[in-house]
Amino acid sequence: MEKKYQIFLSSTYRDLVEERTDASRVVLDLGHIPAGMEAFPASDTEQLRYIKKVIDQCDYYVIIVAGRYGSVDAGGVSYTQREYEYALEIGLPILAFIREEQNSSLDDGVYQPELLDRIEKLKQFRAKLADSRLVRFWADRKDLRYELARSLSHAFSDFQRVGWIRANRAASEDTISKLLETSNALARLQEENARLRAELAPSVSGIAPLGAKIDIPYTYSVYYRSGSLTERGILATTWRNIFVFVCPNLMAPVHVDAFGTLCEKFVTHSAGRISCDIGVAWKGQLKIQLIALSLVRSYQATMVKGGVAEYLTLTDYGKKVLMEVTVIKA
């Protein structure tokens, strides 16, 4: 949608009348809206308040400086500088155009300040503007027109603003009303979904934390020349140890049977056996505990050859906990 930007043109008044006219024409030629106070140059505090309201409505601020400091307020600061400081305060993109230095004295026409102390203030103000990011220097009106057109074109691209559009090209009130109605309906559905999910979630209290101890019974085989015997053992460990051993493998989904195999590998490794069996019941218990701790989630998926299978994977919270307990810290 085509936008027009409103650009505030600021400068001292008497010495830059023609330059301000040139600047307005450049803005209009670029298809945008010049704003300035040519008819009402700031000369008192009330006028400055009004100018600030105009600046508030603008998208860019252009300041043109030559050899005059301009009328000053009770604090000795020029109204032009006050305008600049306000644009800086509200965060407008500022484009400064400074006339190149020329030999000047108190007798020099355009460059003659009305009071001697304004010479130093003008120098300080020019130096402040010269340190700006978007600053250009000009020697004559032709030079100013060129620099202004080029700088504004770059600013429109690099510092895009809200701008203005014609009312008949903006979204109609009916369209906005329908969008708002749809947005509200979506918000209500999301709230209802969250409520239903909370109702379906199991309410578990007093669940053993990750650092709690657990005794896992297991069986293992002892082999003799004449045969083998099945022995029983108990592994004393913690849920944290199980989580750290098994769950790095759940960064990607694994089949529930693969999860059970990982649990048996943990017991075998921790007990120092060749092979251990913990049984279906304990595989299920370990799965349920990790799900209850919100570290793992279970879901069903259709297999390639048909049928449905259960898979386990880490939750986002589980991934975060895994990083915290396994990462090597300095």
Score class of each variant (00 low, 15 high):
residue 3 K to P: 06
residue 5 Y to M: 06
residue 11 S to T: 01
residue 12 T to I: 03
residue 19 E to Q: 04
residue 20 R to Y: 12
residue 26 V to G: 11
residue 34 P to Q: 12
residue 38 E to F: 14
residue 38 E to A: 15
residue 39 A to I: 15
residue 44 D to K: 03
residue 45 T to G: 08
residue 50 Y to R: 10
residue 51 I to P: 12
residue 51 I to C: 14
residue 55 I to D: 07
residue 55 I to H: 06
residue 60 Y to M: 07
residue 61 Y to F: 15
residue 62 V to H: 06
residue 64 I to Y: 08
residue 64 I to V: 02
residue 73 D to I: 06
residue 80 T to N: 08
residue 80 T to L: 08
residue 82 R to G: 02
residue 84 Y to M: 03
residue 86 Y to E: 09
residue 92 L to G: 05
residue 93 P to M: 11
residue 95 L to F: 10
residue 98 I to R: 09
residue 99 R to M: 05
residue 103 N to A: 11
residue 104 S to V: 15
residue 105 S to C: 13
residue 108 D to Q: 01
residue 111 Y to E: 05
residue 115 L to E: 07
residue 116 L to G: 00
residue 116 L to F: 01
residue 118 R to F: 07
residue 119 I to V: 05
residue 121 K to G: 05
residue 123 K to E: 05
residue 123 K to Q: 06
residue 125 F to M: 12
residue 126 R to E: 03
residue 127 A to G: 04
residue 129 L to A: 04
residue 130 A to C: 14
residue 134 L to M: 14
residue 136 R to I: 03
residue 140 D to H: 04
residue 142 K to T: 10
residue 143 D to S: 02
residue 146 Y to M: 00
residue 150 R to L: 04
residue 152 L to G: 00
residue 153 S to R: 13
residue 154 H to E: 13
residue 158 D to M: 00
residue 161 R to W: 02
residue 163 G to Q: 03
residue 166 R to G: 01
residue 168 N to T: 12
residue 173 E to W: 13
residue 175 T to V: 02
residue 181 E to I: 03
residue 184 N to C: 08
residue 186 L to V: 12
residue 186 L to P: 02
residue 187 A to K: 13
residue 188 R to V: 03
residue 188 R to M: 10
residue 192 E to I: 09
residue 193 N to A: 09
residue 195 R to H: 09
residue 195 R to D: 05
residue 196 L to C: 09
residue 200 L to V: 14
residue 201 A to E: 13
residue 204 V to E: 01
residue 212 A to E: 04
residue 214 I to P: 01
residue 217 P to I: 05
residue 217 P to D: 09
residue 218 Y to A: 01
residue 222 V to E: 15
residue 224 Y to E: 07
residue 225 R to L: 11
residue 226 S to T: 13
residue 230 T to L: 14
residue 231 E to W: 07
residue 232 R to S: 11
residue 234 I to K: 10
residue 236 A to W: 07
residue 236 A to S: 14
residue 240 R to D: 10
residue 245 F to N: 08
residue 251 M to C: 10
residue 252 A to S: 14
residue 255 H to K: 08
residue 255 H to A: 08
residue 256 V to D: 06
residue 259 F to S: 02
residue 260 G to H: 02
residue 260 G to K: 01
residue 262 L to K: 08
residue 263 C to M: 06
residue 264 E to N: 07
residue 267 V to K: 02
residue 268 T to F: 09
residue 268 T to V: 09
residue 273 R to V: 01
residue 274 I to R: 09
residue 276 C to G: 00
residue 284 G to S: 15
residue 287 K to F: 02
residue 288 I to C: 04
residue 288 I to D: 14
residue 288 I to K: 05
residue 289 Q to V: 02
residue 292 A to N: 13
residue 292 A to F: 12
residue 297 R to E: 15
residue 297 R to N: 14
residue 300 Q to M: 13
residue 305 K to A: 10
residue 305 K to C: 01
residue 307 G to D: 10
residue 307 G to L: 10
residue 310 E to Y: 00
residue 312 L to Q: 02
residue 314 L to C: 05
residue 318 G to Y: 03
residue 326 T to Y: 07
residue 329 K to P: 13
residue 329 K to Y: 15
residue 330 A to P: 15
